[in-house]
């Protein structure tokens, strides 16, 4: 049998911090505190092993190695001081998967209504995968997909099903 369309791996080591603030006013504060530039609308900016994902005009998601999450949350909270803002360690809240391989896009195309083929290289797209919410961005050799932890088994089942060998979307 042919190979699966992509390698689906659950990522166990991602820490995540939810940040809510007026990005126009506090962008510099955030960038300095976390060491990553503020991403453009619907984009991801990365520095080393830290990425800032644009979630909405007043929300960012900092993705970083899990052991750094507690300290980074505290650093952000300190940096914000009395400014109206929110920084929460939400590292346990999500299930994350990598989808790697030449046909990784085909796997996502079967589940998501978003036009992911046109997503820019540094794009961040929030959409749905079948019946649940998800967020998607690129990584070396494929994509990262995050969803809520309670539906981790569902997401894994979806992704593995969509990656079944021989089911690439190329015209026959």
């Amino acid at each position: 049998m042919a190979e699966a369309l992509a390698r689906i791996t659950q990522l166990q080591d991602l820490g995540m911090i939810q940040i809510r603030a007026d990005l126009a006013a506090l962008g510099d504060v955030i960038a300095k505190a976390v060491g990553v530039a503020i991403p453009a609308q619907t984009s991801v900016s990365t520095n080393g092993n830290r990425s800032l994902c644009w979630m909405s005009h007043d929300e960012l998601l900092l993705v970083l190695p899990k052991p750094e999450a507690v300290a980074a949350t505290a650093a952000l909270t300190d940096a914000f001081g009395s400014s109206h803002s929110l920084a929460l360690d939400v590292s346990d809240m999500r299930a994350a998967f990598s989808i790697d391989g030449a046909k990784a896009l085909h796997v996502l195309q079967k589940l998501c209504p978003a036009d992911l083929a046109s997503m820019p290289q540094d794009g961040m797209r929030r959409t749905r995968a079948a019946q649940v919410a998800c967020g998607i961005w690129r990584r070396e050799g494929g994509y990262v997909l995050i969803g809520f932890r309670s539906v981790g088994d569902y997401l894994r089942g979806l992704l593995q099903g969509a990656a079944r060998p021989g089911t690439q979307l190329d015209p026959r």
Partner: peptide
Amino acid sequence: PCCGISAEETE
């Protein structure tokens, strides 16, 4: 208009 994404009804 908040994020510029063209979303379909199911989103």
